[in-house]
Design a protein around this nucleic acid. Structure first.
Lengths: 345, 345
DNA sequence: GCGGGGCGTCGAAGCGCTTCGACGGGTTCA
DNA sequence: TGAACCCGTCGAAGCGCTTCGACGCCCCGC
């Protein structure tokens, strides 16, 4: 391995000069700079990361902690992870991939050892066990998701409450009165992962305001699970005319099963998905959806984090406003229901 | 931050003793060891990663390079990545997440700077630009995938050639004579990503051996793309009775479109998927499939890599044998075709 | 023409750890 | 009973970098 000292010798300057050329923290004459840069190029020099971290007190590494349960909402996670990695590189940081497996201990380890300068937490639960060690570490951090207590934290997330409300508004305007939420797997709610509850909350309160009935059914992914769920929904609320789906693995099964039951989308039943754009576009019916802006979330998280590392970032909760894109899966509530409704009026 | 020296003072021993307690590289008396461990616990000591890397000459970090085009075969990638991270931790390594964006330069950077002790490359192309810098670096590495020239390299992958053959065997035994491969997006073939070609190769040669006709159609994911592709397949080969799909984003569309065309699976048309187990099980028809053993691949890659870091690992190409699981999507070729076939004989 | 101030460069002191050689004391074997 | 040895411990030397203070030198102003 080529060292700073060798570069210095090759360029006929001192080691510190090379260091200053690299960091730009002191002014260097053009001639010297060029000579040094040339030597670096010729020798193929790469600064040693360990030495740099030791001397400089920072590793230029951001830890990204992805959820333990990888079977859940995988595409979003992957998209965020890649967006984080890409954005981080653009700011000169590398990304360390931590799985949820180690939990709080991993946070302690990477912050305590100085391996990571900062941490991004994904899949944050309302009362997340990783937060105490994170707070204690004093390291800059950004959460993707929203815990119950956000004091002193920076969080980036889609505004899921507004998302829920937006879905209700759209459906209400189309004349729907009875809607059902096909949610994430029950485990997601049990773990009290914020986003699922917030969507539900948004749906519930807006539905109450506008006089719609809402049924909520968590659901595992896959056909069999959804078939059972769907059966119970229609048994309990036969007049359900619209679905909000927040579960990637349930989107396609829902469409297929509705078809199988002879319910046309959007003529008989409307469907809104809360999912990444791509899922909505590639589905068998182009879905009206609220996009989960995964890339944007990853990018923003990194930007806030870098600002905090540099000492400039305020603690702040950033809720991205949801955008509903109307595609082919939502339409006016079917006449029968609309008649019943006007009959009531 | 607590340092080694502070632990040493607290325990009343020298710094080197603490170091040896930590590494176990020299024998330490039980009493001393306990005293040191107690001090470590009490003070909440975590060895500084940078210092360790600098002094020890190794970072205990493995770089994992995921593909640039994240839209492709995402679930497999994520599964592998998580498996790698988990397995790596079990061996005391952390994982640095690199995206393909930087390409060869990233390999140079992380190996040259000593940031990573070793590298795992995913999504390897036949003539992969990342291999020259990787070879030049002299760092241990494992590829997930197979380049054209594997001299001096360790590779782990599913045996896709055997996978193709296995699919043909299964279909041939069921009496199918005309089969079609719905492949990955054309881009995947253009980039000459090994696995896609190898599956095709396996299918082709076994089909030739057993006298089956094979049609190959790369295909973008999603409904519209697949609808077009499928139309062309049936135009060109109306007697096609079986499909092999190697494209996660095409699985569900294929099933839906076949249904829409009035072709029942498996009565009229058989379908075999090459995909992760979960995709096959959760599809609208439980799919006969050859599983892509993502977790296994990630795990194996790490194990080989760790062996190489420790100087024990031979260069080796590990091709995992494919396993075909028969589920509900394959059955005997329809009678019309079987008759035609016996007429020929 | 001389003093003051930048500017550009250097030397040295660490950062926190690993590891090598050394050393004292207790065994062990002839 | 001494030499040879091993075990447990220590001190010191570095790993390759950053950064601080110091030091010339040149340019400027008076």
């Amino acid at each position: 391995m080529v060292t700073l000292a060798e570069v210095a010798r090759h360029a006929g300057v001192s080691a510190s000069t090379v260091s200053y050329v690299l960091s730009g923290k002191r002014s260097i004459s053009g001639a010297t700079r060029q000579r040094v840069e040339e030597s670096i190029r010729v020798l193929g020099y790469h600064p040693n990361a360990g030495a740099r971290a030791l001397a400089g007190g920072r590793s230029n590494i951001i830890a990204l902690m992805v959820p333990l349960r990888t079977e859940l909402y995988v595409p979003v996670m992957m998209e965020i992870a890649v967006a984080v990695a890409t954005a981080a590189r653009a700011h000169g940081y590398d990304v360390l991939l931590l799985t949820g497996e180690e939990g709080p201990a991993a946070v302690r380890r990477v912050t305590g050892s100085g391996l990571a300068d900062a941490v991004i937490l994904m899949d944050v639960e309302l009362d997340d066990g990783r937060l105490p060690p994170l707070r204690a570490s004093g390291r800059p951090s950004v959460l993707i998701g929203l815990p119950a207590d956000t004091t002193g934290l920076t969080c980036v997330d889609l505004d899921f409450t507004a998302t829920g409300a937006l879905c209700v508004d759209h459906l209400a305007e189309l004349g729907h009165r009875e809607i059902a939420l096909i949610g994430e797997a029950p485990g997601v709610y049990e773990r009290r992962t914020g986003f699922a509850e917030r969507t539900l909350g948004g749906l519930r309160s807006r539905a109450a305001e506008r006089g719609l009935r809402l049924l909520h059914r968590p659901c595992e992914g896959g056909y069999d699970a959804l078939a059972a769920t769907l059966g119970r929904v229609f048994d309990e609320r036969p007049d359900t005319t619209a679905f909000v789906v927040q579960n990637e693995a349930a989107v396609e099964p829902l469409l297929a099963l509705l078809r199988r039951r002879g319910r046309a989308v959007p003529e008989d039943v409307s469907v809104i998905a809360v999912c990444p754009e791509q899922v909505a576009v590639q589905a068998s019916v182009r879905l009206t959806s609220v996009a989960v802006p995964a890339r944007e979330m990853g990018r923003r998280a990194v930007e806030h984090l870098v600002a905090k590392i540099d000492g400039a970032g305020p603690d702040e909760v950033v809720l991205l406003p949801p955008e509903l894109t109307v595609r082919a899966s939502t339409g006016p509530a079917p006449a029968r229901v609309r008649e019943a409704r006007s009959g009531e009026a």
